[in-house]
Amino acid sequence: MRTLILLTTLLIGACSAGPQPIRYGEDACNYCKMTIVDQQHSAEAVTLKGKVYKFDAIECLVHYVSPLDETTFSHLLVANYDNPGVLIDAKTSSYLISPNLPSPMGAFLNAFDDANRSSAVQREMSGELHNWQSLKRTITTRNQIPN
């Protein structure tokens, strides 16, 4: 009986695992296989079962998650452009696609934790603002490779 309780506790412990830190220069992107090095554009998804997927660019997270059921993820996280290495909630972030701010996979996509801040950067750098929903539509309908 005691063994059973111990085992149950261990299993619950394993299930509640949350996000993991990205090991920059070592971890590979789950979507495009590139080694993750850019602390301003990385991203992470954690499933309800606790499996962690890491991405080198926010556009890779979007491509990965869009065809899937979002409710199966406990966390969707993106790097905060203003605070390199810090991951923030993808669903509440404000996004700027600006030709003057390149990102690792060619989408020119950057995330900010606050809509006032992304608007301010937009005024300086130009580009288009998005929330999570409009971002998914925009990224998945664009052609990735030029001819």
């Binding site: 220069g25 080694t35 090095v37 060619g106 990735q144 490779i145 030029p146």
Partner: peptide, 12 residues
């Protein structure tokens, strides 16, 4: 080099 010796993205 940390990542790639040579890296092509969207280049033809």
């Amino acid at each position: 080099n940390l990542r790639y010796g040579l890296h092509f993205m969207f280049s033809n």
